[in-house]
Amino acid sequence: MNPQSQSELDRINRIAWNSPDATREFTAQKTFSDLGEQAAFDWLGPRCAGQPLLDIGIGAGRTIPLMTAISDDYTGVDYTLKLLELAKERFPERDLRHMDARDMSELPSAHYGLVEFSWNGIDCVDYVDRVKILKEMYRVVRPGGYVLFSTHNRGGPGYGENLRQLLPAFTFNPLKLGWRTLRSLRRLQLGTLNYLRNARLNHDYGSYAVNTAAAHNFGIVIVYTTLAEQRRQLAEIGFQRDVVFGSCDGGRIPDDVQTSSTWWFHFIAHKPLAARCFD
């Protein structure tokens, strides 16, 4: 993507992904991001075993072992070269490519049995580009194949985070309180600066919102969506929705539920066998 065409939201988030804080976060030894992701992989594993897999937004490679446990036919992509190089160092045997999910034209259409975009990566572009990503996921997944992505909940506790998140959580243990205070003081200046600079982009559109988030010292601005809006968007593109898992307890969110208190959702949908074409 041409840097001149980047939105302000996109520009801010790219800076965050290249920061030392992001490097520390994405190289930490983690498996599943939460119980909802684990439930999603448990659901998809037997359905996608042995099929070609596409992993979008791999960062430093957290999801590579999770995906390759399903199938060894694996391709991973990320648009942040710094993080991608870390992933290549860790997994030199894997097919890892520098690529923006909004334009995956070098990948074949109707090929992958599973296309996955984890850790709310789809929330880090504006809403128009979000649609581009979902259309590209639809294009590259084979008829009958699945997509999995996570997205922040407009009705969840993460929406509307503010500078209070920088203050230390109180505890009667003086050692813990002292440590938390020191850690907060280290973050306070940068976090406050980022919040004041980025909060100007906050806007509530009703069915979804754009808002600065506390992660990376308020260094990112992301999309928060509702169940109804994400369901509508998937149907409009042509996907058939299968299941939604909540991040907090990994529970399945029923189709008739309209609101949830979970931090984010894990949506699984599939491309119908008689699918429209975006080529």
Results as ranks from 00 to 15, higher is better:
Gln4Pro: 01
Ser5Glu: 15
Ser5Ile: 00
Arg11Pro: 05
Arg11Trp: 06
Ile12Leu: 05
Ile12Arg: 05
Asn13His: 05
Ile15Asp: 04
Ala16Gln: 09
Trp17Lys: 02
Trp17Phe: 10
Ser19Val: 03
Arg24Ile: 08
Arg24Cys: 02
Glu25Val: 11
Gln29Glu: 13
Thr31Arg: 15
Phe32Gly: 09
Gly36Lys: 01
Gln38Lys: 15
Ala39Trp: 00
Ala40His: 05
Ala40Asn: 08
Trp43Ser: 04
Gly45Tyr: 08
Leu53Val: 11
Leu54Glu: 03
Leu66Ser: 11
Leu66Glu: 08
Met67Trp: 02
Ile70Phe: 12
Gly76Ala: 05
Thr80Arg: 07
Leu81Gly: 15
Leu83Ser: 07
Leu84Cys: 06
Glu89Trp: 01
Glu89Tyr: 11
Arg90Ile: 04
Phe91Ile: 00
Pro92Lys: 06
Asp95Thr: 15
Arg97Ile: 04
Asp103Tyr: 07
Met104His: 05
Ser105Val: 13
Glu106Asp: 14
His111Trp: 04
Gly113Asn: 11
Glu116Ile: 15
Phe117Ile: 10
Trp119Glu: 12
Asn120Pro: 07
Asp123Tyr: 00
Asp123Leu: 06
Cys124Ala: 13
Val125Tyr: 00
Val128Lys: 14
Val128Pro: 01
Asp129His: 13
Asp129Gly: 08
Lys132Trp: 10
Leu134Tyr: 01
Glu136Thr: 07
Arg139Lys: 09
Val140Thr: 09
Arg142Ile: 06
Gly145Thr: 07
Tyr146Glu: 06
Val147Gln: 07
Leu148His: 13
Gly156Tyr: 03
Gly158Trp: 04
Gly158Arg: 00
Tyr159Val: 00
Tyr159Ser: 10
Tyr159Met: 04
Gly160Ala: 13
Asn162Arg: 06
Leu163Gln: 05
Leu167Pro: 03
Ala169Asn: 14
Pro174Leu: 10
Pro174Ser: 02
Lys176Glu: 08
Leu185Arg: 10
Leu188Arg: 00
Gln189Pro: 00
Asn194His: 11
Leu196Met: 12
Asn198Trp: 01
Ala199Ile: 11
Leu201Thr: 02
Leu201Glu: 03
Gly206Trp: 07
Tyr208Cys: 09
Val210Ala: 03
Val210Gln: 02
Ala214Pro: 01
Ala215Arg: 12
Asn217Ala: 06
Val221Gln: 00
Ile222Trp: 04
Thr225Gln: 02
Ala228Trp: 06
Glu229Gly: 00
Gln230Lys: 05
Arg231Lys: 09
Arg232Lys: 14
Gln233Thr: 15
Ala235Thr: 11
Ile237Phe: 09
Gly238Thr: 09
Phe245Trp: 01
Ser247Asp: 14
Gly251Val: 07
Pro254Arg: 10
Asp256Ser: 08
Val257Gly: 11
Thr259Asp: 12
Ser261Pro: 06
Trp263Lys: 12
Trp263Ser: 09
Ala269His: 05
Pro272Phe: 11
Ala274Arg: 13
Arg276His: 12
Phe278Asn: 13
